[in-house]
């Protein structure tokens, strides 16, 4: 990893207007949990509807999508990526720096409010379980969305299709698709780490852990390979 690239990436990411979209999401999660508790909603319903239905299924992938596609995709769009690419740095180190920033920002932005919301629902252990699971999920999502931003010109659209169609629709209907659903890995991690009976996981720990590693490594490797052959379109192209 290259610290200078990480520093530029973090400053660019946090200074961008699109990043402001991240701010309300944690507050919404905590706010809705508080409202639910205020109305004496059962913990089982809050765990399933708010922590998983909103936190894991919506906020975690959306935050990761905004951040993951922004750390490198925006530099490719505006051409500033050339400043980094004209340096004698292995492309793998560039991708690792971008991934580290994306994963850290996404993990912090989602894990902290998830900890607060889950702790409100079922205590500190549930809070820690969801926070750590979301942090792990942020790493996998970041690797996938970072790869998309280098591989395609429509990373946000494709990322949304994955989150909404694949994870939101198909993985709840077609059992086999859960094997390639980060959302279901996160639910399994949260279940194992918290030991909670408020919700049930749908994939085994072995599958979730192995697939999380496979997707992270594959995304990172693909992004690196693509960056090695990065072409700049000219006026005559």
């Amino acid at each position: 990893m290259n610290m200078t690239i990480a520093w530029i990436t973090a400053r660019g990411l946090l200074g961008r207007r699109r990043s402001w979209l991240l701010l309300p999401m944690p507050l919404i999660l905590i706010g809705i949990t508080a409202i639910g508790l205020g109305f004496d909603a059962p913990a089982v319903d809050l765990a399933d509807g708010v922590l998983i239905g909103l936190g894991v299924a919506v906020i975690l992938p959306l935050v990761s999508l905004i951040v993951g596609t922004g750390v490198l995709g925006s530099e490719i769009d505006d051409g500033t990526v050339v400043h980094i690419l004209t340096k004698p740095i292995p492309r793998s180190r560039i991708i690792l720096a971008k991934l580290a920033v994306a994963a850290t920002v996404s993990a912090v932005t989602t894990a902290v409010p998830m900890f607060v919301a889950a702790a409100m629902v079922g205590g500190v252990k549930l809070g820690l379980g969801f926070a750590l699971a979301c942090a792990a999920g942020a790493v996998v999502y970041s690797a996938l969305f970072l790869a998309l931003s280098v591989l395609t010109r429509r990373p946000v659209l494709l990322g949304l299709l994955y989150v909404v169609i694949w994870e939101g629709l198909l993985s709840n209907v077609v059992m086999g698709t859960r094997t390639v659903s980060v959302q279901h890995y996160v639910i399994e991690f949260a279940s194992e780490l918290s030991g909670s009976t408020l919700f049930t996981a749908t994939v085994s720990l072995g599958v979730a852990a192995a697939m999380a590693v496979v997707l992270t490594v594959a995304g990172t490797w693909l992004a690196t390979q693509r960056l090695r052959s990065f072409s700049v379109a000219g006026e005559t192209s």
């Binding site: 660019g12 400043h83 052959s229």
Partner: peptide, 23 residues
Amino acid sequence: WRNPAIYRKLGLVNEREAVYGFL
């Protein structure tokens, strides 16, 4: 092509004037 080591000898100022405006 596909050789980052050449940038030890090469400097490029391309036509697109994009810079990190926040720096």
